[in-house]
Design a protein around this nucleic acid. Structure first.
Lengths: 178, 178
DNA sequence: GCTGGCATTATCATGCATGATAATAATATG
DNA sequence: CATATTATTATCATGCATGATAATGCCAGC
């Protein structure tokens, strides 16, 4: 008892089982209350990977729990707070219409990369790539949609060499890529 | 831009759509990267309620996100911190073998209720019911498994009057219910 | 030993999410 | 106007999660 259940990465299976045992309930008990079957709950608790949120919600209810499902944007691993501040300072001049913030680097990486590719110097590009990490940088490049045809073509070749599939099919003109 | 996405209760649909738009990707883009179909993603973003975690994980990957699924035990609403402290103090004497803590009241409600029903005075029971709230209390009673036959029978009748289905089928003897 | 509840797993039928496709509408650009 | 892309929805076939049931083994108490 009195276990600190503060670990962040618990499998769904583990959470279901632990909660059920904490409440001292049997599979059949929980299943009946949830309006599902004991077989399903047993599968859920033992190595199942394809859950339905519909069933999960019913189970959560029976276990007197809230089901919380969140999409957490992955942080670029190589972007420390310090690096972020540096990047913002260095690249600020390219974001004349809307000031760049540290959060933008993670929340809108595509936006940042587009600007830098389009207007930055070679050293800006190298700087950003180093700060974001090669992988995150190239991924962002691959999904950039608002590049001028010239820029887009250039990077498409680079990406091909890297074996990265580019989701961009054609580039639409925007205010700045004529 | 620069929106504070700190609200806790966002639907899955909303999170998927917002993240996709933040990245500036089309349905087809994300679907292709996720290895799913645009139709499915569109359904996911528009009022769908029965998701498969398998598909959600693939989408999260395509959106450079982590999928976080948690079972959060519901707190008894009428149990403020102050009430918890009071309850712990009042009922402490019934937990001679393992000291009662405030967390136990939420994490192991069944355990607490069993002890109080079995060994507490009438005023203890009234006190706990008031602190937990009628609903939470009766739910815990309904799932209690380790009551003496006498106690169990008595409460089963009470629960029947309240229209609550009791999950308890039979009571197994423990160290204390002979 | 026997008995009863429990957990797990297998099997099978069924219901539902998914994928593929197409039709439609909206938007933006030339 | 035509064109290109996107988003949404409908339809249908298919694959898979689910529910029902049963078989098995385990454990506890008689």
């Amino acid at each position: 008892m009195h276990d600190n259940n503060m670990s962040d990465d618990v499998s769904i299976s583990g959470q279901l089982k632990q909660r059920r045992l904490n409440l001292g309930l049997s599979l059949a008990d929980v299943a009946r209350r949830a309006g599902t079957s004991a077989a399903t709950l047993s599968r859920y608790e033992n190595g199942w990977t394809r859950f339905e949120t519909y069933t999960l919600r019913k189970l959560a209810l029976a276990l007197h729990c809230e089901l919380d499902i969140k999409l957490k944007p992955k942080k670029a691993r190589s972007m420390s707070n310090r690096d972020q501040q540096n990047a913002v300072k260095q690249l600020a001049r390219l974001f004349w219409d809307h000031p760049l913030t540290a959060e933008d680097l993670e929340t809108y990486p595509i936006w940042v990369v587009e600007r830098v590719l389009e207007f930055g110097s070679l050293s800006d590009i190298a700087f950003l790539r180093e700060r974001m990490g090669q992988q995150a940088f190239l991924t962002a490049v691959a999904t950039a949609q608002r590049l001028s045809p010239k820029t887009a073509n250039f990077w498409q070749n680079i990406l091909q060499l890297e074996g990265i599939i580019c989701t961009k099919k054609y580039s639409r003109n925007t205010a700045w890529n004529s």
